[in-house]
Simulated assay, not measured.
Amino acid sequence: MHVIILALLIGVIAGLRAFTAPTAVSWAARCGLLPLAGTHLAFLGNLITVCILTLLALFELVNDKLPKTPSRKAPPSFIARIVFGAFSGAAIGLGVGSVWTGMVCGAIGAVIGTLGGAAVRGALAAAFGKDLPAALLEDAVAIVGSYLIVTHI
């Protein structure tokens, strides 16, 4: 049950910010919170992987605020979020012995996070009268949420 919840939640994070989920999982592997040594996903704990994913996540945080950034519900973005959610969920699942459960739950969570995140951000942007505060709040939820998830593996 534990892996189902964590994988689903990391998928939700991928739906909010695509690169935040694999970055959090990579940091967890690097810090020894997620036991991936000796598995096919052991590369996630490599310092180079952590650095590359961190840079991509930071780029995404900036790029998300730009006016020409396409909707997360556009097919390429939506598919990427599902893939990253499934991958991140699989890593959590692999670390505790249930890779397929983690993968499926991560993908489902990504769909929930993508659609739910877009709806909540739209409502918050309307309430604030502009998008930036809603986007920054979503960033905070994704970052703090991913930290809480990987520290409870």
Score class of each variant (00 low, 15 high):
30 R>F: 15
7 A>D: 06
102 G>R: 03
34 L>Y: 10
97 G>K: 07
153 I>L: 14
136 L>V: 14
17 R>G: 06
17 R>I: 01
13 I>H: 03
125 A>R: 08
26 S>M: 11
61 L>Y: 11
55 L>N: 00
92 I>V: 15
109 G>E: 06
80 A>G: 02
13 I>N: 07
98 S>P: 03
4 I>V: 14
93 G>S: 03
116 G>Y: 02
54 T>F: 09
46 N>T: 05
112 I>W: 01
38 G>C: 11
10 I>Q: 02
1 M>D: 08
148 L>C: 05
64 D>S: 03
96 V>L: 12
144 V>C: 08
81 R>G: 08
146 S>F: 09
88 S>H: 09
103 M>I: 04
112 I>K: 03
34 L>V: 09
113 G>W: 04
75 P>C: 11
24 A>P: 03
150 V>G: 10
39 T>L: 07
100 W>T: 11
39 T>P: 03
97 G>C: 11
6 L>G: 01
129 G>W: 13
103 M>T: 08
21 A>V: 05
100 W>I: 10
107 A>C: 13
78 F>M: 14
47 L>N: 05
58 L>K: 01
86 A>C: 07
76 P>S: 08
43 F>N: 10
66 L>R: 15
12 V>N: 04
46 N>M: 06
29 A>L: 02
87 F>C: 01
14 A>N: 08
113 G>S: 00
153 I>A: 13
15 G>A: 01
25 V>I: 15
46 N>R: 06
40 H>V: 09
88 S>Y: 08
107 A>I: 09
124 L>N: 01
48 I>C: 04
127 A>W: 08
100 W>Y: 09
133 P>N: 07
138 E>M: 11
7 A>T: 06
109 G>L: 09
119 A>Y: 09
63 N>K: 09
127 A>H: 10
45 G>I: 02
65 K>M: 14
103 M>S: 08
123 A>K: 15
121 R>K: 14
7 A>G: 10
49 T>L: 07
123 A>D: 00
69 T>N: 11
13 I>D: 00
50 V>M: 03
62 V>P: 02
110 A>E: 05
13 I>K: 04
81 R>Y: 07
55 L>T: 12
3 V>E: 02
32 G>R: 11
50 V>G: 00
83 V>L: 14
23 T>L: 06
132 L>V: 15
60 E>Q: 10
76 P>G: 08
131 D>T: 10
151 T>Q: 12
52 I>S: 06
15 G>L: 03
59 F>V: 13
42 A>Q: 11
13 I>V: 15
36 L>R: 03
117 G>D: 00
54 T>V: 14
133 P>K: 08
61 L>C: 09
75 P>Q: 07
14 A>R: 01
31 C>V: 14
72 R>A: 04
13 I>P: 05
146 S>N: 01
